[in-house]
Computed example of a mutant assay.
Amino acid sequence: MSDPTPDPEPDPASDRADKRPLWIVVAALALGAAALWGASRLTWLAEPRAAGVRGTVLHTEDGAQAAVALVPLAVLALAGVAGMVATGGWPRRLLGAVLVLAGLAAAWIAVDGARTSGYPAGAPVGEMLAAHGLALVGGLLVAAGGALGLRWAGRMPRLGARYSAPGAKHRPADSDAHLWEALSDGEDPTIGR
């Protein structure tokens, strides 16, 4: 005897709740990558150097020159976004651990040379402090995104998970979505209409 109850309609609120951890991780990693890249564009180092005939001049370097790991760490965090979306299970956990270490490395780079006094005359002190602070925030965001990815690895959806294992069919709430579902399943949605 068949079950007379119809298939329950999918709840859009529960779908959003299932995707929320993924969006939090993606946002943390993307913001962390942007902060690290921004810190690499700001003045990171200013010191007087002998310039031959010109005497002593103020030499400045941006974060990409003075702290060369900032840009690769930003690229790693950005790649981590794609990795968190596309993977699942233990690869996602491994990626989360790598991102935690990368974030902590970026935070260490930010605090390792930061100082509040002893700058030469004419140095852009405010910009230098902002660069270190931005790198610290970026590193912490990347570490937090990796840690949340570790914690929520099983709860987050992944790319293509819909096609990975056939299961109970659910009825789409939208008739157009039903047509696309039928096409995805290899059926002709126009037959029987």
Rank of each mutant, 00 (worst) to 15 (best):
P189A: 00
A121N: 08
L58Q: 03
D11N: 14
L136P: 00
L45E: 15
A131H: 01
G192I: 03
R16I: 09
L22I: 06
A51V: 02
L140S: 09
P12W: 09
G89R: 08
D176N: 14
A123V: 04
P8K: 04
A131L: 05
D174M: 00
P189T: 02
A121G: 10
P12A: 10
L99S: 05
W152Y: 15
G186T: 09
A74I: 07
P8N: 03
L141M: 14
P8T: 05
R49E: 15
V53W: 09
M128K: 05
R151M: 06
V98G: 13
A130T: 15
T43C: 04
A114M: 12
L150Q: 15
V26Y: 01
L99A: 07
W152L: 12
V100P: 04
P12R: 09
P12D: 10
P189G: 01
A79K: 00
A114R: 13
G126E: 14
A177P: 00
T190K: 06
L141F: 12
L136W: 00
L150M: 15
V85G: 01
L183I: 15
L104N: 02
D188T: 07
A51I: 04
A77T: 05
P124A: 07
L29Y: 11
D18L: 10
R41S: 09
V25W: 11
D7C: 00
W44Y: 08
G96Q: 11
G52Y: 10
A131W: 01
P157D: 05
D176R: 15
P48N: 08
L95F: 02
W23V: 03
V68K: 09
P6K: 05
D185P: 00
A39D: 04
A144D: 11
A110V: 04
G154S: 14
G133L: 07
L140R: 09
H178M: 12
H132Q: 11
A82I: 02
L76P: 02
W108Y: 15
D7M: 11
V53E: 14
S14M: 09
A64C: 01
L73V: 02
L94R: 12
V57T: 04
G88E: 13
A177T: 08
A13C: 01
L159K: 02
G192K: 01
L136V: 01
A28Y: 07
V111G: 08
A86L: 07
A64F: 03
P91R: 02
A74M: 06
A135Q: 04
A144W: 13
M156Q: 10
D11K: 07
T190G: 02
P21H: 12
L76M: 15
K169I: 11
